[in-house]
Amino acid sequence: KKKYVIKVYFEDTGKEVEIEAESKEEALEAAKRLAEELGLKIKKVEIYP
């Protein structure tokens, strides 16, 4: 089964997080949740198959 690796870059902090997920949708949801939890804004998202 294919996994996606999503790199999320946050504004202000210069922080980046990698998330593995089964689908792009799932990964983007996780990225949004994470940003909310951390109180950060997402600057850029890169998706690698």
Rank of each mutant, 00 (worst) to 15 (best):
S23C: 04
I47F: 08
L40G: 02
K41G: 04
E18Q: 12
K1I: 14
L40C: 03
A31N: 00
A30S: 11
E16P: 06
E22H: 11
Y4H: 02
I47G: 04
K24H: 11
I42G: 00
V45D: 00
K7V: 04
V45L: 04
V8Y: 06
K43D: 08
V5N: 04
G39Q: 10
V17E: 08
I6P: 00
A35Y: 02
L28Y: 13
K32V: 09
K2Y: 11
L34T: 07
G14D: 09
S23Y: 03
I42T: 01
S23W: 04
Y9L: 07
K3G: 03
E36F: 15
G39V: 03
K43H: 08
E16Q: 06
I42N: 00
T13N: 13
K3L: 14
K44M: 08
E16R: 06
K24Q: 10
V8K: 00
E25V: 09
K7G: 01
G14W: 14
K41Y: 12
E20Y: 13
K1V: 12
I19Q: 02
K44Q: 09
I6Q: 00
A27F: 02
R33H: 05
E25Y: 09
L38Y: 12
A30I: 12
K43E: 09
K43I: 11
A30Y: 15
I19N: 01
K7Y: 05
A21D: 02
E36L: 15
Y48Q: 09
A30P: 00
E26S: 10
V17T: 07
E16N: 11
E16G: 09
Y48M: 10
I19C: 05
V17I: 10
E26T: 08
K32S: 11
G39T: 03
K7F: 06
K41H: 06
Y4G: 00
E36S: 13
E37V: 14
A31F: 12
A31Q: 01
S23G: 04
Y9G: 02
A21G: 08
L34P: 00
E37I: 14
K24F: 09
L34S: 03
L28S: 05
E16I: 13
E11C: 14
G39N: 10
E11T: 11
K3M: 13
E22A: 09
E36T: 14
K15Y: 12
I47L: 11
K43P: 01
Y9S: 05
A35L: 03
A30V: 11
R33Q: 03
E29Y: 15
L34G: 01
L34W: 13
F10W: 11
K3I: 07
K44S: 10
D12V: 09
E37D: 08
K3E: 03
E11D: 12
E18I: 14
R33I: 07
K32L: 13
F10Q: 00
E22W: 14
K1Q: 14
E29A: 15
D12M: 13
A31W: 07
T13K: 12
L40I: 03
L28V: 12
R33L: 06
I47D: 03
E29Q: 06
E20G: 07
E16L: 07
Y9W: 15
D12S: 10
E46Q: 07
K3P: 12
D12N: 10
A21V: 11
A27C: 06
V17M: 08
E36C: 10
A27W: 03
E20L: 09
K1M: 15
K32W: 15
K3T: 10
Y4P: 00
S23V: 03
I6R: 00
Y9N: 03
F10M: 02
